[in-house]
Design a binder for these strands. Sequence first.
DNA 1: TGTTATTCCGAAAACGTTTTACTAAATCAT
DNA 2: ATGATTTAGTAAAACGTTTTCGGAATAACA
Lengths: 360, 360
Amino acid sequence: MMYIYRAKTIKFKGIYDMAKRNVSLKDIAVACEVSIATVSKALNDHSDIGQETKEHIRAVADKLGYHPNAAAQALKTNRTNNIGVLFVDEANSGLTHDYFNHVLNSFKKTAEENGFDITFINGGKARINNMSYLSHAIYRGFDGVVIACVDFSDPEVEELVKSNIPVVTIDHIFYNRTSVVSDNVNGMRELATYIFAQGHRKVAYVHGAGSSVTQNRLTSFYKTLQELGVEIPDEYVVVSPYRDTDAAYEATNKLLDLKEPPTCILYPDDFAALGGINAIRQRNLRIPEDISVAGYDGLELARRLSPRLTTVVQNSEKIGEIAATKLIDLINNPKGTLVEQIVVEGTLDKGESVSNIIKI
Amino acid sequence: MMYIYRAKTIKFKGIYDMAKRNVSLKDIAVACEVSIATVSKALNDHSDIGQETKEHIRAVADKLGYHPNAAAQALKTNRTNNIGVLFVDEANSGLTHDYFNHVLNSFKKTAEENGFDITFINGGKARINNMSYLSHAIYRGFDGVVIACVDFSDPEVEELVKSNIPVVTIDHIFYNRTSVVSDNVNGMRELATYIFAQGHRKVAYVHGAGSSVTQNRLTSFYKTLQELGVEIPDEYVVVSPYRDTDAAYEATNKLLDLKEPPTCILYPDDFAALGGINAIRQRNLRIPEDISVAGYDGLELARRLSPRLTTVVQNSEKIGEIAATKLIDLINNPKGTLVEQIVVEGTLDKGESVSNIIKI
DNA sequence: TGTTATTCCGAAAACGTTTTACTAAATCAT
DNA sequence: ATGATTTAGTAAAACGTTTTCGGAATAACA
């Protein structure tokens, strides 16, 4: 696609030409006629500084417009109060990845509430001096790192995980590292069981492939239906990436072209389901009367479609929150805390897109 | 909603108990039997170090697993290679804000390609020692700051914008600061003109309110239709926040309940349009035969709905990219670069949700 | 051979903090 | 009044860099 943009350049002179030197402890020290050490202690509320001195120093600091210098603090204390976020998904959708940005948003919120900032760890490919993930993390001095949705088989990821930087992984379990995962096994079990209960026996599965998340779901799908006595033929399982409506569209067409098409199709996520829905509607089939569909994720989108999408709503907020909490625990108490593996359950949203086809 | 989660705690001992001291220039210096200065220069490829010395030092640095220390570098050079991102939207949707996360994703990409990292500037409310935006930016020493989608009347934002930190604002123009804005005026003009050409005269507008973005659109909407000789009664304009499907649902119902309901409704964004669509469908009205709708933003969602949504696709990728480029220009050349105000045009996607109602 | 460039490297200061060890003064107990 | 303790503050080192100013050795030149 061609993009046009007009630019009108206003001929202002540059405005950033004043020498910038921020006020430092030293400035406060001379203003108050005390030592730098005293200023530092006063601002950090140490007990060995007199009350009136503290108040005076703080007042002067305020008046002078003092701001602490994160770099200097970090250099001295080995703490940055900064958390690295590593996220590289297969589709490279980055921040536009629906599920992830919900998780991250909640992670960010709790991290900030605890005084931490968030910085992205970017790939080796993009950087000028191309560092590995671990190099980047060491370089920035992150107090901890959260890893989500990446290709966990990437050796660079493994290197990072095995380092001595506190790590929490999301939706993937590493031995001896704490992780927060969505309960895909039970989620899929619930969904499959519900679909079975609605009378469906010919159930197809559009598989998101790639990660342990989708692998868990697929396994759970097979297992659940097998326990219920349903056989899934191989041609009922097709692959299509996360959030890829085009691929889901193709996959759906393939399924509908089978001699014996399924009565229900499961998609890797709600958005991909849209692609499937388009394919189905294009054939003038009705949802759910002629064919049923189900998504996954439980984004708001699912509730806004008509018919409302049957889906498993993942508790992305809770996942982000717990991940942040646990990571901060780890940071503040590196030797004390135990390694935990936390499973966050989702809930089935029955919606309206899976019909009851039990013959009466 | 009640959220359940199970946690199984694996009783591993803490693993982060090894003392971590990263290898420094000094370590390399003693290993190579040269001075620290020489090591620094060698690694930074200064011209006054011999070729073989450089190579040797680099080899040793590699072997020892050296990583530069961002904090120390920042302290010394007053450069952090880090850009602050300020983003607070009305709805507090944060990273889940569709349009913004597209812009940010693209911004992030170009920033990283130029060796910059990205850190969020968070609100005063969330932080423990609640800093203003500017304080936070100074504290972290951001080389530059990008501001998007915030409440630009917030005095804290103004304080930041007026500081001597290089700033680029997105979708809002400040005097004497460079900005990148989506062309909402022309976008809305195109959309309104198209709708008019399709024969619609009773056009309602669900107004996103709050920002200059939506204000520009509203103004352009009024202006365009007035120029075309169409009068918009006051009750055709109702307010509903960005991306709020529930509010859009309500707003739509209000519009449909009018004695003389509109033949076409515009929404502040594609997602909100979904809420409207639900309200319409609930009354068994067909889109676009009985009533037409249009969105804004041009997210992929719009193309995946059926009927495909008529919308204005904003060039979010380009906006992010330009914002990053311009900000980096400003950072690298603070006194030389001019202040620019860049307008990025969008394109009308006619979709299928606005019908032609011209009587033949 | 003596002078001047050129090449390569080092000493040391500085960036803004925090923290340890210490001192001087004030308070207390006896 | 003496010694012991507490209180309030300071000096200085250290964190890991970068950079300025030289300085010594070597090379080039007359």
